[in-house]
Design a protein around this nucleic acid. Structure first.
Lengths: 107, 107
DNA sequence: ATAATACATGAACACATATTCATATGATTA
DNA sequence: TAATCATATGAATATGTGTTCATGTATTAT
């Protein structure tokens, strides 16, 4: 594409990338992980405990989140601490939440 | 939930609703339909032609989009014309696009 | 060095979902 | 009324995806 981004000229590749991007957010386990990391950085074991999930499931989903640059990680002693990749991710999560809260009423 | 929306207290129901919401955007056919409708309102036949898709596939996906209040429709003679439900949807689509364009380089 | 800990990975399985084909519905035209 | 057109729907199928189990790898502690 050249110059201004015209929706009409969205290439197939971009279409698939957009869908793939949203797909990452379209799983409740990943959403739970992301919102948990929004408060604190956490290592894998802490995520497993906090979310009451299988360790393997968490690792698999963390890989997906890593591959999509949504989380970053660092070593800390024996553990690996995950955190949101940047504030942009936080903004996206907030928007998703606001959209839902705007649509529905939860008591 | 009460008062300010604290991420920490996100209920399971909200988590699932957020994931379901993103899931709708996580399919390339639906994304193509939505971006097509971003330019013009279109009837089903026009969508089928413009996107080179099976009529049944389009109808099935339009139902998903309807159920999630992303598109609205009206009768126009023999056809049913679909359009984006409100400008909020447009904003969301623009953000998805910008996020992808920001991340990757398309020539 | 061995054992234990923390996490990642691969394969198998179960489940969800998109597409297609066939057909139904409903409105319009002849 | 019969036929046609536009769209919707249901069932079947194929493909994708998340979870689990088993195991691998790397690091730390004994």
């Amino acid at each position: 594409m050249e110059g201004k981004t015209e929706i009409s000229s969205l290439s197939e590749a971009v279409i698939y990338d957009i869908a793939d991007f949203y797909k990452v957010f379209g799983d409740s386990t990943r959403i739970r992980i992301l919102y948990a990391l929004m408060e604190n950085e956490l290592n894998v074991g802490e995520l497993v405990q906090a979310l009451n999930l299988n360790q393997s499931a968490v690792s698999h989903q963390l890989r997906v989140l890593r591959q999509n640059d949504l989380v970053k990680f660092r070593k800390d002693g024996k553990t690996i601490v995950y955190s949101l990749d940047d504030s942009h991710v936080t903004v996206l999560l907030q928007q998703g939440l606001e959209h839902i809260l705007h649509k529905k009423v939860y008591d």
